[in-house]
């Protein structure tokens, strides 16, 4: 999948020296990242390093302490409420939890963004919704309520909802989590097709290294508040950094910490002089 690097010349999203903290804890310590237009960019990294936080920063739900975030030529943190909401109409986001509206059926959930932002006639809305549900394999589940869905189904409905309006930018937060191998294959193909046919700029957050690397044009690995490795999938596979190699191959021992920052283990277990 790896194209030549020069096609990445036009960034759709550009983060420069972004610093972000949460209750005294530094989550990002100077992250700079370019997300190319019309491409799939994968963001990978250990759990809890702030991948979801990064998406929320891009969507303007959180504001960085310093640094700039430019999306389609506009500085997201400086936008007024109204312009921010207008900008978001062009974005789709698949939440890690799905976040379906629990009082609406599957059909109405997917129809929701269409009803809010357009004035299409009812039969057209019906066609679009069924098409999107068909794409995730859940056309038959249209009358179920969110409480009646399994975790993986919830996420697929949420995916259908986030692409309902064919946004310019779509951010997927862990689309593959909880999917069986068949659904996973379908989703991989769907994400690739959406990018191909519509030219959607896609940001894919995922732990599934092989799947992500197989569809993305560009990937970066976040750890310890920084980008530790970035490039085309092939460049990453041959990356010299030990951290990157450890992450891609999933070795438990190495320079990337698996544990959330903690005090010396000896203190917690009450052993004198024990080493962490």
């Amino acid at each position: 999948m790896s194209d030549t690097t020069d096609s990445f010349s036009e960034p759709y999203i550009e983060l420069t020296d972004v610093v972000f903290s949460r209750d005294d804890r530094r989550i990002f310590d100077g992250v700079s990242l370019k997300i190319p237009r019309g491409r799939i960019t994968a963001i990978m990294g250990p759990s809890g390093t702030g991948k979801t936080t990064l998406l929320r920063l891009i969507g303007g739900q959180l504001k960085p302490d310093s640094g700039s975030i430019i999306l389609a030529g506009e500085s997201v943190p400086d936008l007024k409420r109204k312009s921010l909401y207008q900008l978001r109409e062009k974005m789709g986001m698949l939440f890690q939890s799905g976040a379906l509206f629990t009082d609406l059926s599957v059909f109405e959930n997917v129809a929701f963004p269409i009803r809010v932002h357009t004035r299409l006639p009812e039969d057209m809305i019906r066609d679009i919704v069924l098409m999107k549900l068909e794409a995730v394999g859940l056309r038959g589940a249209r009358d179920l309520m969110p409480a009646q869905l399994s975790g993986g189904m919830t996420r697929r409905v949420a995916l259908a909802r986030s692409i309902a309006l064919d946004p310019e930018l779509i951010m997927y937060d862990e689309p593959f989590a909880g999917q069986d191998p068949i659904a996973m294959g379908v989703l991989v193909k769907l994400i690739r097709d959406l990018n191909h046919s519509m030219g959607m700029t896609s940001v894919l957050v995922s732990h599934d290294v092989p799947e992500s690397l197989s569809i993305c044009h560009h990937a970066c690995i976040v750890s310890d508040g920084r980008i530790i490795g970035e490039g085309t999938p092939d460049e990453l596979r041959n990356h010299p950094s030990a951290k990157v190699q450890q992450f891609l191959k999933g070795h438990p021992d190495g320079p990337v910490p698996f544990h959330y920052p903690a005090a010396n283990a000896g203190n917690d277990w009450g052993i004198d002089g024990g080493g962490g």
Partner: peptide
């Protein structure tokens, strides 16, 4: 708590 308000925000609905 179930991020429904967040997802409204991200859909451009206040």
């Amino acid at each position: 708590a179930t991020e429904q308000l967040s997802s409204l925000e991200m859909m451009g609905v206040d």
